[in-house]
Design a protein around this nucleic acid. Structure first.
Lengths: 362, 362
DNA sequence: AGCTCCGATGAATACGTATGCATACACGCA
DNA sequence: TGCGTGTATGCATACGTATTCATCGGAGCT
């Protein structure tokens, strides 16, 4: 109170928190906070990071100034010093595929507790993968999550060689050491083939997608091989690309039905989005599901469970997969030299109306 | 060629681009590039920004070193110098609502040509709005896009006061000066009421959503008022919350049908997601659409046009809205003091099977 | 030829933070 | 009283870039 306002009033006196005085030109810096709290900038930093012992009184003084000034640390400066951005880059392939929003929701929820943000790129509408790797090189992001995406670009290869922290979700790269999380696409697709065979189907169909996406490749391979093993008939005219999309799946089934040969009695689509299109195509063509045609998808997106579809599908444990992915990524960022890990989750077949509620036999 | 390798070989001699020599400890900086090109760091910066005249020979020399070293500027350092992050923050409310992926896709496509990235928050699964404003204060983002979201928080109020560059898409804040882009929600909802009346409907229903979202509030208000004007009957038991979701819409229509009074012959849902739920509820209850019940939604999401639904709905010009939003945001970032702009687009009613293909009268 | 002027470039600096190093102080013990 | 020990804090610095100011050299003009 009555203390003379000579410079350097150090210890106990409460800092002057008159809001009028606080208004500094431009944004508040840690130096401003230091000045107002009568400490050094270093101490402010220490208080905010708990990195070293600070006397409780000093600590409280600093914190009250921080609060009064609404001080927020400049991320660029912090990033420059620590070479960490607190940001993760995420690349999806076509965000309008309903599978991705579910994934992103889970991912965001998992990153948030770690104080991490998410930069999003859609490889379908721009240079997703390249942009993401560029962001890493510019130190805009600390790590990347690539989801079912395009082919293995040379950019990705380079990035992996340079030990960029990358986790691939639902995307397998055999020849490169890289953390990967996926589900048993091949095995589950094979089980779907067996499910068809067990229930008396002989002519089956397959709605594919570009095999650049490893999920497509695995599901196609697993289904096709098991179909062959079991002696089911899969005419090549009943193998049609569905482009992972509703419109693609719809067109695919239309083509199958128009092939001029006996149509399949059971169709597997490599993802739900295209399976739903196939369901609608069947409806439009007067083909009754499941009486005349079984349809099975993959992903268990929200719409698969809607009354209008009730689509039998393969469900991946997205939440768990995301949890593990985030763990792997953080570990990779902390220790780039550790050997990469490949984590595979089981898939589960959810039986619904599109396959007549006949359960899957073991 | 034969020039003695005395230090300071300035002009014409090609820089030593032997990859072995280029390997610097740690990442390449603009200083490394400068050294290898025999110029100053300032010149490298000038070349990369075209900010000042540089001799063509120098320019080429620098660029070839940039290419050879794969130099990428450190974003944190650049950001510190320019106080620009090259990043826009985007807040959605529940990304699994299919409306948002469409919006995000358009937004990403619009930002990319400007060299801008997108940080994404979902207000439904975390502190979206608060986190976004914090990101601005930490200079992680240059501007924000808020979409149909939660109530007008005090955080938003503060941010607007502090002239944070924010554009609201589909969200109206009357009492605050802030750039806003929306469509004629109220008017279009009123037109839907008239559409019902014109086609002989007398008992109508309304599937609402929390009025914290201004879209819900506007659509409810527009529809309700016009219903009153036209003398249609809207029983309070036929006004049920659908929570913007499929499950909510489904439950809402179920409640209407179970209300014990004559059911409505036409229902308006404030968004497609809940309208689709209502369609499925009708199907499950044996109520024929459109013969016994008309259903109209809002947003024209992808699923509305699917065969299984063929939902009549109000379509907003998302692409245009996003285009204008990005323009406004960039202008706002460049000139924070200009008066805010409110841009309203017309909505269009797309007639499909759920209203018997009876066109909308003018 | 001498002067001016302009174009091209280098040197220096500031942005705001985190942290290693030095220091000052208090306390305990001999 | 003097010294050692440990704790709390300040000083100084580096991170990598964009930009201002100064400098240097050459060309053009009289």
């Amino acid at each position: 109170m009555g203390s003379p306002e000579g410079a350097g009033e150090a210890a106990g006196s409460p800092p002057d928190l008159d809001p009028e005085r606080i208004r500094t030109a431009g944004p508040v810096t840690s130096r401003d906070v230091a000045r107002l709290a009568g400490v050094s900038q270093a101490t402010v930093s220490r208080v905010l990071h708990g990195s070293a012992k600070v006397a409780p009184a000093t600590r409280d003084r600093v914190l009250s100034v921080v609060e009064a000034t609404h001080y927020q640390p400049n991320a660029a400066a912090a990033s420059m010093r620590t070479s960490r951005s607190g940001t993760i880059g995420v690349v999806v392939n076509r965000i309008t595929n309903p599978f991705y929003p579910q994934l992103l929701q889970a991912l965001g929820a998992r990153l948030e507790p770690h104080g991490l943000r998410m930069i999003l790129w859609d490889a379908a509408t721009g240079p997703g993968e390249r942009a993401a790797i560029e962001a890493i090189e510019q130190k805009r992001a600390d790590g990347l999550v690539f989801t079912t995406a395009t082919a293995n670009s040379s950019a990705l290869r380079h990035a992996i060689e340079r030990q960029v922290p990358i986790v691939l979700i639902n995307r397998v790269v055999d020849d490169q050491p890289c953390d990967q999380v996926d589900s048993a696409n091949e095995d589950t697709a094979a089980r779907i083939a067996r499910y068809f065979a067990d229930n008396g189907h002989e002519r089956v169909g397959l709605i594919t997608a570009p095999t650049r996406a490893s999920t497509a490749a695995s599901r196609i391979a697993g289904f096709s091989q098991e179909v062959a093993n079991l002696g089911l008939h899969l005419d090549e005219r009943h193998v049609v690309d569905g482009d992972f999309s509703y419109a693609g799946g719809k067109a695919a089934l239309e083509r199958m039905l128009a092939a001029g040969i006996d149509p399949p009695t059971a169709v597997f689509a490599v993802n739900d989005h295209s399976a739903l299109g196939a369901l609608d195509a069947a409806g439009a063509a007067g083909v009754a599901v499941p009486e005349q045609l079984w349809v099975v998808g993959y992903d268990d997106i929200e719409m698969a469970s809607w009354d209008a579809f009730q689509l039998t599908t393969a469900c991946q444990p997205i939440t768990e997969m995301v949890r593990v992915s985030v763990e792997l990524l953080l570990a990779r960022i902390a220790a780039p030299d550790e050997p990469p890990v490949h984590h595979r989750f089981p898939g589960e077949i959810v039986v619904r109306r599109s396959t007549a509620h006949v359960p899957v036999s073991t």
